[in-house]
Simulated scan of single mutants.
Amino acid sequence: MANTDPMTQRVELATVMDRLAVDGLITEYAVAVDDGDWEGYRGLFTSDGRADYRSAGGIEGDAGQVAGWLAQTMELFPMRQHLIVNRQLRFGPLDHDIGDTAQVRADYVNPMRFAGHGGGSTAPDFVCGGRYDFALLRTDSGWRLHAVVVNEKWRRAPQNRPEPAAT
């Protein structure tokens, strides 16, 4: 039987709306990285937001520093696609107001294609996977990323293959 208490219904609706907003923010993060929208990437973070890509061979720093590093590094991979799945979401209190923070733990698979060979189907692929830990804060502008930690668990890189002999 559905709860008909108006206050409970408002709280449940607010929770659903927050879940949708947080999910949308995580999707925006993946799209910004895949599309190379580094200004958009920076805009997803709080003013003091940070990201840590060290487990994947990257850097840790504020969102601007990491966006710069990503912009340079992703030139190696003109084709990329983040798949962020198995999202676990928890809301928490900040200053005794329930729902001002959120934690998302999500798995990812990230296939990318190396630059070169015309970017076509002959270019080698690089695939990695692992888990993201996202810390979010509710701001006056909506939900924003406060911290992103990448925990790479595996990767598959192309093996050095001899070039075909000229005929």
Rank of each mutant, 00 (worst) to 15 (best):
H82P: 00
T73I: 05
A63M: 07
G36H: 08
T46Q: 00
W38M: 11
T46V: 05
R42N: 08
G36S: 09
I59D: 00
T46Y: 03
D23H: 12
F45D: 01
F45E: 02
D23Y: 11
P78G: 02
Y53N: 04
L70M: 13
V66S: 06
D62C: 06
Y29W: 15
V66T: 13
H82E: 03
H82V: 08
Y53T: 10
P78A: 01
A63E: 07
F45P: 02
D37M: 01
A30V: 10
G24Y: 03
A63Y: 08
H82Q: 10
P78E: 06
Y29H: 12
R42P: 00
A71Q: 11
A21Y: 05
G36Q: 09
G43R: 14
P78S: 04
D34L: 09
Q65H: 11
M74A: 06
G68I: 10
T73F: 14
W69Y: 11
R50H: 12
S55E: 08
G40S: 09
G64W: 08
W69V: 03
E60Q: 12
A30P: 01
D62Q: 05
D35L: 14
G36Y: 06
A51R: 02
M79C: 03
M79L: 15
Y29C: 05
G43N: 14
R54A: 04
A30Y: 03
W38K: 05
G57E: 00
G61K: 00
Y41E: 08
G36E: 03
Q72L: 14
D37K: 02
F45N: 00
G40L: 11
G49F: 09
G49I: 11
W69F: 12
T46L: 03
Y53A: 03
G40W: 12
E39F: 01
V66L: 04
G43Y: 08
E39P: 04
A71S: 14
A63H: 14
L25D: 04
G61F: 04
G64C: 07
G43S: 09
E75N: 02
G40A: 05
D35F: 12
A63T: 08
A21G: 05
Y29M: 06
F77H: 06
G61Q: 01
E39Q: 13
V33M: 03
G58W: 00
L25E: 05
A71R: 13
Y53V: 06
A51I: 07
G24N: 12
G24Q: 11
S55V: 06
F77T: 09
Y41N: 07
G68W: 05
R42T: 13
R54H: 02
D23T: 15
G68D: 12
L83I: 13
D48R: 11
A67R: 07
T46I: 04
G49W: 09
A32T: 12
D62L: 05
Y53S: 07
V33Y: 00
S55Q: 07
F77N: 02
D37V: 04
A32I: 07
E60T: 14
D52S: 05
H82I: 09
E60V: 13
D52P: 06
R54S: 08
A21H: 08
S55T: 15
L44V: 02
